[in-house]
Simulated assay, not measured.
Amino acid sequence: MTWLWSNISRIFEYLDQGGLVMEPLLLISVLMWVLIIKRGLYLRRMRVRNMPREMAAQLIQENQQPDFMEFRGATALVVSEFLKRREANPGVDRSTMDETVMAVASSFDKQLSVITVLASIAPLLGLLGTVLGMISTFDVISLHGTGNARAMAGGISEALISTQTGLLVAIPGLTMKNFLASRAQTLKHRVSSLGIFLGRRL
């Protein structure tokens, strides 16, 4: 318990040393990682427990919704969304299938742009903290000269900590965004291929 409180106090001390931008950086970091985890779990769910294409085609022919307790992947989602939109007209159904595939594929990219924006804002906030820290340092120099090293160190510490934190938030965030975008692109290819396969069966 003492170890826990010691680490918590160090975190608060670190945030305090970083200045005004640390709280927005912390908020951005938490929000960004919540979105990353949610998107990662969603894309993983789309990749696993997929039904075979032949079963998907059979469900469409029988106009029967898939069992989401057994199949949770992208194939089941395409079948379910298509059955909600179909009009029992083969010509119209092919267009409906294309629209369904586009809608499902676009859902894979949701929140990725928000993650990118949050990760891009973080180093800018860190840069703002650098500027504020250097302004504080120059204020000390203007009042006391270069003789008060302790007061100068506070401003320099604020500048460096805020910059460091901004980069620590941004680099993993952008890395995870690119990873999720790659997963989403793979799913888009699979869904497009599935749409062509099912379209031929209509």
Rank of each mutant, 00 (worst) to 15 (best):
E99D: 12
K110Y: 15
V101Q: 08
S120R: 03
L124C: 11
V131D: 04
L112E: 02
G129W: 04
A105I: 05
G129Q: 15
G133P: 09
K110G: 15
G129P: 13
T100C: 04
S120C: 05
E99C: 12
I121L: 05
M102L: 14
G129D: 10
G126H: 11
L127V: 03
A105L: 10
Q111A: 12
S120T: 04
R94I: 11
F108N: 01
P123A: 03
T137G: 06
V114M: 10
L127S: 14
S113C: 03
G133N: 04
S107W: 09
D93Q: 04
G133H: 03
L127M: 07
A103L: 07
S95K: 04
T130Y: 08
T96S: 15
T130S: 05
V104W: 07
D93R: 08
I121W: 00
S106H: 10
L112R: 15
M134W: 01
T137F: 02
D109K: 11
L127C: 11
P123F: 06
M97L: 12
A103W: 14
V114Q: 09
D109R: 12
L124M: 13
I121F: 03
Q111F: 07
G133L: 10
V104Q: 09
D93L: 14
T100V: 00
A105C: 07
A119P: 00
T116G: 11
T116W: 15
I135N: 07
A122V: 02
A103Y: 15
D98R: 03
V101Y: 11
I115T: 14
S136L: 04
D98V: 09
K110E: 08
L118S: 00
V117K: 08
I121D: 01
G126S: 12
V104C: 13
Q111P: 08
Q111I: 09
M97H: 11
E99K: 12
D93P: 14
L112H: 13
T116D: 06
S106P: 06
S136A: 10
G129A: 13
P123V: 01
L118N: 00
I121N: 07
L124D: 13
M97G: 05
L124E: 05
M102H: 08
A119E: 00
I115M: 10
S136V: 02
